Amino acid sequence: MVYLEIALIAYVIDLIFGEFKITHPVVLMGNYIKWFESKFYKDSVFAGAALGVSLVLIVGVVSYILENILLSLGSFGVLAAAGLGSMAIANNMLYESVKRVINHPEEIRFLVSRDTDNLTQSEINRAAIETYAENLSDGVIAPLFYLAVFGLTGAFVYKAINTLDSMVGYQNSRYANFGKFSAKLDDVANLLPSRITAILISLLFMSKRAILKLWKFGKLHKSPNAGYPISAIALALGIKLGGATSYFGQIVNKPYFGDGREEIKREDIYRALKIKKRLDIFIIVTLSLGVLFC
């Protein structure tokens, strides 16, 4: 199946080269969202749904046309499609961004939406690990899944949905209605990938505890998806994530994910990041077998 081949090559390209120094499609999607909001914003679900549907349609149609043109070009087209597909995967960027927090804790402000001015070192470490686990799903497994199953169209429609959620899917006075459609759409799109990610985290850390208990803790999160990979990595590392967190000056009392120690150390970030090499090997081997036998 050609989509598996594209996904395999795309993953390897991201692994070797990381982000290309060109305008990222997500930036273009973000620009469209800002333009639409500036012109058509209303405090209504309908206006937000119009934004979501219009962006998904535009991205879907453009991706579909481009994909079919490229696949008509044979092997060169497959390679070009994989190059584009790699831009939907943020594996290297995520790893390097979280790793930098170990020696540059102030950079946590670039990775999270929570208030960061008065975080303790343990809270910074906790935020870094939570971000890594959640974004393994949003930035790696989910786009790779949609790329392998639905090709470039699937991968970039997913990125459009994820970008909508990250920009307008907030529960505040401005976006509670306008961003509701985008937030729900993102919930649906991540329903399966988030659980795949949680299972992979548990298996790659060889943690029976995580496999057995992630379902109990994962369902406690306000999000129907984010709690599963966060719970899996907390249980695998023997730590406790979640808890009281400040957003826009307000304390949100999240439930705890995991039942280990609450004090999170820098070494725990290193331990969390060790999954990357195992994940790289697993994905490359799995996709290679898929290309050979499908």
Rank of each mutant, 00 (worst) to 15 (best):
M1Q: 09
V2G: 10
L4A: 13
E5A: 15
A7G: 12
I9P: 07
I13D: 08
D14K: 02
D14I: 09
L15T: 15
K21G: 07
V26G: 09
V26A: 09
L28Q: 00
M29Q: 02
G30D: 00
K34R: 13
F36C: 08
E37R: 02
E37C: 01
S38D: 09
S38W: 02
K39M: 04
Y41E: 08
F46Y: 11
V53W: 01
V53E: 01
I58V: 14
I58K: 01
V61I: 15
V62Q: 04
S63W: 00
Y64S: 15
I65D: 06
L66Q: 04
N68Q: 05
L71G: 10
S72L: 09
G74R: 00
S75F: 12
S75Y: 08
F76H: 11
G77A: 05
A80T: 14
A81Q: 08
S86H: 05
I89R: 06
N91H: 12
M93C: 14
L94V: 13
Y95W: 11
E96Y: 14
E96V: 11
S97H: 12
R100Y: 07
V101Q: 03
P105E: 00
I108Y: 04
R114G: 14
T116M: 06
D117C: 11
S122Q: 03
E123H: 11
R126V: 01
A127G: 06
A127R: 02
N135M: 06
N135I: 10
S137D: 05
D138I: 08
I141T: 12
P143L: 05
L144C: 10
A148N: 10
G151I: 02
V157M: 10
Y158Q: 01
I161E: 00
D165R: 01
S166P: 10
G169S: 00
Y170I: 01
Q171N: 14
N172W: 07
N172R: 08
A176T: 13
K180T: 08
K180G: 08
L185V: 03
D186W: 00
V188A: 07
N190S: 06
L191Q: 10
L204S: 12
M206Q: 13
S207T: 07
K208F: 14
R209E: 15
A210P: 04
L212R: 13
G218Q: 01
P224V: 02
A226E: 03
I230V: 15
I230P: 04
S231H: 08
S231M: 04
I233K: 06
A236N: 05
L237K: 06
G238L: 03
K240I: 10
S246M: 09
Y247H: 11
F248W: 10
F248N: 14
G249K: 07
Q250R: 15
K254S: 10
G258R: 05
G260N: 03
R261S: 15
I264S: 07
E267W: 12
I269T: 05
A272K: 03
A272C: 07
A272T: 06
I275S: 09
K276M: 13
K276N: 13
K277A: 15
D280Q: 13
F282L: 09
F282G: 11
V285W: 02
L287V: 11
V291D: 05
L292M: 09
C294N: 13
